[in-house]
Amino acid sequence: MGRYIVQRIIYMIVTMFVIVALTFFSMKLLPGTPYKNQEKLSPEMIELLNHKYGLDKPLPVQFVKYVGDLLKGDLGVSFQFDGRPVTEIIGERLPVSADLGFEAMVIGLVFGLLLGIIAGLRRNTVWDYGSMIVAVIGVSVPSFVLAQLMQYYFAVKHHWLPVAYWEGPAYHILPDIALGFGPVATIARYMRTAMVDTLNQDYIEMARAKGLSRPAVTFKHAVRNSLIPIVTIVGPMAVNLMTGVLVIENIFAIPGIGDQFVTSVYTNDYPMIMGTTIMYSVAFIVVVFIVDLLYGVIDPRIRLAGGES
């Protein structure tokens, strides 16, 4: 276990280094200079500015400085917000996104498990088919299409819920559902398969033969054992949510990191894009790492070293 963790951490560092190098050199490939009003600047002035910011040094030297700044937590300043540090903007907006993502995840888990359990218990009935139709739709329909549909129907047309912004519980409903529908569908599908598998096991028959009540068999034996494969998909799903957050925040004008990111793309705010990218990568890598560790804790059958294929 200890060896595995060390090995994984080394991989994480290498991966992070590759990402930082990629972002750094992509920035250098961009045309133009990082200065405002560059057409008004004479070549001499640009040279002076370059010297001031260390941009006249060879690329490897600049790269070392960039990595050094990064390790100190300095991501540069935003073009768009007149020199506010990128880290400050991220720190301000991250909690909102985390809130949205967490709520969507909870919705996904609660309704996904419920649908999956019902479908698995009532196999080949209307309940099963209904749940699986919902699941296929949820897996397929892009969250931004669903979000628009709900926003139009529930907010614009019928005024039942607020159209946008992030101010009170009512404002959370539409974005949470739009973002959480995909996870509901994915979890429901996996849970159904797991339930069907588990219910065919000998120990379920044994439990029934012993005369345990139906709820006891269902919840103590079937559901608990079916939950193991669910843990394996929660990690990738959290990562998918991070992608979904980008568009959902944009559609509902939620002041989170995803909305900021889309705006930065439109306004060519490169330091902001790079800062968000690096933050996103760190979050991604850490989530995947934690989930991998969790597998081993929950299901001892999984070999952590990951043998052949």
Binding site: M12, L22, S26, L30, M242, T277, S281, F284
Partner: peptide, 17 residues
């Protein structure tokens, strides 16, 4: 190592460049 890099990061960098 490649798998550790989020898709979105590669895609965005590539398209910006």
């Amino acid at each position: 190592v490649l798998n550790g890099i989020p898709n979105l990061v590669i895609i965005i960098l590539l398209i910006i460049v």
